[in-house]
Design a protein around this nucleic acid. Sequence first.
DNA 1: TGGCGTTATTGAAAAAGTGTCAATAGAGTG
DNA 2: CACTCTATTGACACTTTTTCAATAACGCCA
Lengths: 199, 199
Amino acid sequence: MSQPTSQRTRLSPEQRREQLLDLGVRLLAHRSLDELSIDLLAEEAGISRGLLYHYFGNKHAFHEAVVRRAADDLIEQTSPPADGDPMERMLTSLAAYLDYVVANYEGYLSLVKAAAGGNETLREIYEEARSALNSRIFREDAQGDIVPDTPATRLVVRGWSAMVEELVLSWIADPRGITREQLLEIMAASLPAIVEVAG
Amino acid sequence: MSQPTSQRTRLSPEQRREQLLDLGVRLLAHRSLDELSIDLLAEEAGISRGLLYHYFGNKHAFHEAVVRRAADDLIEQTSPPADGDPMERMLTSLAAYLDYVVANYEGYLSLVKAAAGGNETLREIYEEARSALNSRIFREDAQGDIVPDTPATRLVVRGWSAMVEELVLSWIADPRGITREQLLEIMAASLPAIVEVAG
DNA sequence: TGGCGTTATTGAAAAAGTGTCAATAGAGTG
DNA sequence: CACTCTATTGACACTTTTTCAATAACGCCA
């Protein structure tokens, strides 16, 4: 913006990749994946289209890299499980997840949207991220303190995850009517409640 | 197919629109929205690309119309609530929804994916459809037999809907481990259970 | 039955987007 | 201060979307 655009700016490959991926995630927050054209991104980044192809090969690969970046951010920034009893650990994990989404609402939204609407690869990337979160809850629950491991409960936990995601996103979009603590409590308490029902 | 393709067939605008939308929905079952090109559709329909633009203006508008059509099908074909007590009506509604998804798995999956990954408009269309399903719960439950109408419960019902969708899709993808009746029972029973927790 | 007007439909050509690659120039190095 | 390495460009080929003047079905009326 402030520099004369008549000059090329030459960055290291790492810097350039970072810049393009970050910009991609940012742009994705306000439009769908297929509205994220190479043209648009190149223009926003102030580079030629050719450079994008140099770094990512083709549009799909670029989209994939953007989604993977968003997923990695999520996994990395969500704090590891604290110790304590299982229920306490779950609350901690849920809180970390909620706080992350609050702090990165748009980026997270773009991850969810892209993954839900995308191809197999994109969905796998997202699945990985989600199971990384879930595993923190269930990893040390081998005794089934919270959830016994059966086909029915596996299914139900999937459903619960979808609910948690929806609750978090909806609550952030409109947090009136319920506090952060209430939300966390509801999400945590509903898991055993649902598992009970499925028993 | 059976007529010589060398002749134009001239239909009434309504017939033509129907044909193109139906074909669009059908084609969408086996590919994603952005693989549904104007070229492909025109060829499958045996018409020129120009005609599609005449009817729908541009590709996005066509996609939108196709998704809206699929959503309308869902609402329409999901049978209206029978009479009986609230819990019974909910079970009936859930069963109708489940059966619809079973019968139109791929098409429904495409609808969900298209809506989730798409732009604001597409998501709104899908939201409408889902709230049409949900409103059956609130509308005829004015006395709050199942769910009292508060901000907290509205939020929770949203979450529950997301869970139901995930459960249905996951169960169809792999129905081992749990019967249709068990699934319905779990979904129905979990709503009061979650509402209880949120109380 | 056959001309006639309305308008659904076409086809060609422009515009927009994707992908390729040889040529260019920025930045560190000796 | 050249010199080299390679990040970056821009022009071109190809595919897909969009436009629009020209065309030809179909219903209507004589």
